[in-house]
Design a binder for these strands. Structure first.
Lengths: 166, 166
DNA sequence: CAGTTTAAGTCAGCGTTGTTGACTTTCCAA
DNA sequence: TTGGAAAGTCAACAACGCTGACTTAAACTG
């Protein structure tokens, strides 16, 4: 990696104007990022919170409610409302823990997995197009900046998920 | 810039696993992105919507409600509620248009500008730290990918704002 | 084994911020 | 001059965050 971080250039780069551009880029891009799944969800009377739950349950099948709470960063009351509808609608299954019977382990049903796939494919399609348009080097930079922007606890979650393959 | 976009590497890069990492990076990073202003706003009994309104009014002083609607991508009823409280609290001033008296032109008051500065400085500080940590080359890639991820209409807004230096 | 802690879930209630529908005021063009 | 379109406002509703108080069940601990 050619390092062009001379202090002169680096300082020049961090004008308030440059930072504002980055802030607005995040704002507009995040809208695009959520737009496609949102359209699918609207028809099903679900919201973004349902998508997030499906995503992370799929990501870590058998995760507990408590784990999910930590990843999503919401209160259990808030998550519970979402989880209850997903279970009632037969998209998520909740199994009592074998070792610790207080815990509930969460799994996607076949239908839940199908919806998750549909939602994430819409999101991946956009991400794929953006990656193709920007090129691999840009993607590496994109990921570096995003990671640097996370809170420490979120970065831990991010890396924890990175490895756990199934 | 050393270009490593050979078609083999580019294809290798776009596995579903790589795309999922990008999706989760966006999710976690956006939380960090909004965390600092959110803390300030919570004390003031304002929300993220107020922050966005202040940001874009500051960005384009004298803009109309309709312009703001297009940039923010919400309904006018939704924006109106936020605007009403900001006006009532003396942070925003609404002036009847001189040419077209149906229009309202929006300006920040001194107090409004002060809050906007406080909020955006918190956000800029995080962005600045992330930029410093990742380096100028990564920042360029970050901006490229974000821009490619926007909807076409949002990209137009993004570029329109880019130039207009108050 | 009694007492405490932990995991999960429920109920009630509230705030922000999206939505749609109905309305007024203002402008402009047929 | 009248009728439609545009700008903005008001009312009501839904999604989804939040806090607080509580229950149930299981696990741990002294």
């Amino acid at each position: 990696m050619a390092d062009v971080t001379t202090s002169g250039e680096a300082l020049l780069f961090l004008t308030d104007e440059q930072l504002r551009k980055g802030i607005e880029a995040m704002f507009f891009a995040y809208r695009g990022f959520t737009a496609d799944p949102d359209r699918i969800l609207a028809d099903l009377e679900y919201g973004r919170a349902h998508h997030r739950a499906l995503h992370f349950i799929n990501r870590s099948q058998g995760t507990t409610v408590n784990n999910l709470l930590a990843v999503l960063g919401v209160t259990k009351q808030s998550l519970n409302r979402v989880l209850r509808t997903l279970i009632a609608d037969g998209l998520v299954e909740s199994r009592v823990g074998r070792k610790d019977r207080r815990e509930r382990h969460l799994y996607l049903t076949a239908r839940g997995a199908e919806l998750e796939r549909q939602l994430s494919e819409a999101q991946r399609a956009r991400m794929r197009a953006a990656y193709r348009a920007a090129g691999p080097q840009a993607v590496a930079g994109f990921r570096q900046v995003l990671e640097a922007m996370m809170d420490e606890t979120m970065r831990a979650q991010y890396h924890a998920l990175k490895d756990g393959k199934s």
